[in-house]
Amino acid sequence: MSKEAERAAVEADKQRLIREGELYRIKVVHAKALVGNALQPDALLHGAVDQAIGMAQARLGGLLQPGGLKSVNFKALLPYALTVGSYIARKRLVKPAMGVALAAGVGMAWLLRRQPAPQDEQE
């Protein structure tokens, strides 16, 4: 190789390294911005709610009909549940609400026990 070809190759390597360094700095700035946004209180709360909903679906999924809790859209129901919960708390109806929930649970258990068990097919 001639001296000019070597200089051109070295210059090309320098330019490539400079571009890679710029890209690396841009990625670092972008990552810092993502972390800053992820640490905002609303993003933390949203992540915690998503985690709790996922855990509830995983733990309680087999309790309901086929499909489990996957067919229930908890994210759509959560604002209504919070509204009802805050109304109950403001009006100091916590104990009556717990009584109604207990009665509903006992009623559901009674209904589920009354249903005839599915019979297996006989050969």
Rank of each mutant, 00 (worst) to 15 (best):
M55A: 11
N73S: 10
L77K: 08
L63K: 01
G68R: 06
V72I: 14
L77C: 10
S86E: 09
Q40T: 14
L77N: 00
T83R: 08
P79R: 03
Q65I: 05
P66F: 11
L44A: 11
K75I: 02
A76D: 15
D50L: 00
G61Q: 09
A81I: 07
Q40R: 15
F74L: 09
P79E: 10
G54L: 00
Y80K: 14
L60W: 11
G67Y: 07
G47H: 12
Q51Y: 11
M55D: 15
G47A: 12
R59A: 14
G47I: 05
A56Y: 09
S71T: 13
L78K: 08
G85D: 09
A52C: 02
A48C: 03
S71K: 05
M55F: 14
L63Y: 00
G68K: 07
A58T: 11
S86P: 06
L82E: 07
P79C: 01
S86Q: 07
P66C: 09
P79A: 11
S71F: 09
L60T: 08
G61Y: 10
A76M: 13
Q65F: 08
K75G: 12
A43H: 06
G62I: 01
A81L: 10
M55W: 04
S71M: 14
D50K: 12
R59N: 10
P66N: 14
A48E: 06
H46F: 12
F74V: 04
K75Q: 10
V84I: 14
Q57K: 15
G62D: 08
K75L: 07
N73M: 07
A76W: 13
Q65V: 10
A56G: 00
D50W: 02
S86D: 11
N73R: 12
Q65N: 13
Q51T: 13
L60I: 00
F74I: 02
D50M: 07
G62P: 01
L39M: 15
L78P: 01
A48W: 09
A81R: 12
P41M: 05
A81V: 06
L78A: 06
L82S: 01
A48F: 09
L77H: 04
A38I: 04
Y80W: 08
L45D: 05
P66Q: 13
M55Y: 02
G68D: 01
A56Q: 02
M55V: 08
D42L: 02
G62L: 08
L77I: 08
V49F: 05
L60R: 11
K70H: 06
A52P: 00
L78Y: 07
G67V: 03
P79M: 11
L63A: 04
Y87N: 08
L77W: 06
G54V: 06
Q57F: 10
G67P: 14
L45P: 00
T83Y: 10
G85L: 04
G61F: 08
T83P: 00
Q57R: 15
M55L: 15
L39W: 02
L64H: 08
P41I: 01
